[in-house]
Nucleic acid binder design. Structure first.
Lengths: 144, 144
DNA sequence: TATTGTTATACTCTATAACTATA
DNA sequence: TATAGTTATAGAGTATAACAATA
């Protein structure tokens, strides 16, 4: 299992996965993918809030956001309640891109899990989520 | 589940995991870890064969191998059967480092899985392995 | 001519710090 | 003074090409 985690987090494996996922979507690659999908997940937000949500640095987030903006997938609008802030939001093209990416991921997972006994997929997903959380937030004590 | 995979492969998550794993072991970091553990897994081997085994480029493998050699964790010896080749092998310190890393990983996993129902861990590990394999080798048809 | 190991080069990603504008 | 956004700079990682030695 440690080997599986090692392989899963290996550069080549990740690169292969995200290259396949994003190959059909113009303007998105393995680096900008988290920004796009994160923005879809939490909705329109400032760069700082988005950066926190996806575990990325503010500076990296804003730079990749610029790339996505140049590709026409997200838009910047001034925040009405704070003149310092800028609200990031998906454009119509951006939402289409998110849908395409989600479809690609889900079709891959569905194909992979087709042979699993019913119910195991749900259990697996739950475990994977918890394990990932434990990895991402090691300090959070899990005494549930 | 897609979100969990996304989070798991996110840079920050990986970096956090490997930083914690390798923090107690001198000379190993997130980049040299695959080389060290791969060499332990397949045994003494040439750089080319090791590179194939861990899904890394030859040039990267040999450079990181040099780092590990400088740290005293692996050794280079001429291949008796081929004067072009160099055999990489763990030193005694290298084997100790591998053990320490494995202990760190297993203690983390054990802690995390302590609350899981018996048997689920094994099922989970099996699924994770298959999923990872599918990600790493997309062309291999899985008609088993 | 092909392969092994290695080094050199350029490119991308990441992190730190600095800058501007506003609170 | 602090915060949001952004840009600049430097460092680390990666990939491609090139090299010498041997098959």
């Amino acid at each position: 299992m440690a080997a599986a985690i090692g392989a899963l987090t290996l550069r080549a494996t990740r690169a292969g996965l995200y290259d396949r996922l994003t190959s059909g979507v113009e303007g998105v690659d393995a680096t900008t993918y988290p920004v796009l999908s994160g923005l879809d997940r939490i909705g329109p937000a400032t760069a700082t809030r988005l950066a926190e949500a996806i575990g990325m640095d503010r500076t990296v987030t804003t730079r990749y956001a610029t790339r996505l903006q140049e590709a026409g997938l997200i838009a910047r609008r001034p925040d009405p309640s704070d003149a310092r802030a800028t609200r990031l939001a998906l454009t119509a093209d951006g939402e289409r891109a998110v849908l395409a990416l989600r479809d690609a991921m889900q079709s891959f997972l569905a194909e992979e899990m087709a042979t699993w006994p019913p119910g195991e997929a749900a259990t697996f997903a739950l475990h994977l989520e918890r394990l990932t959380e434990a990895l991402a937030y090691p300090d959070t004590s899990r005494t549930s």
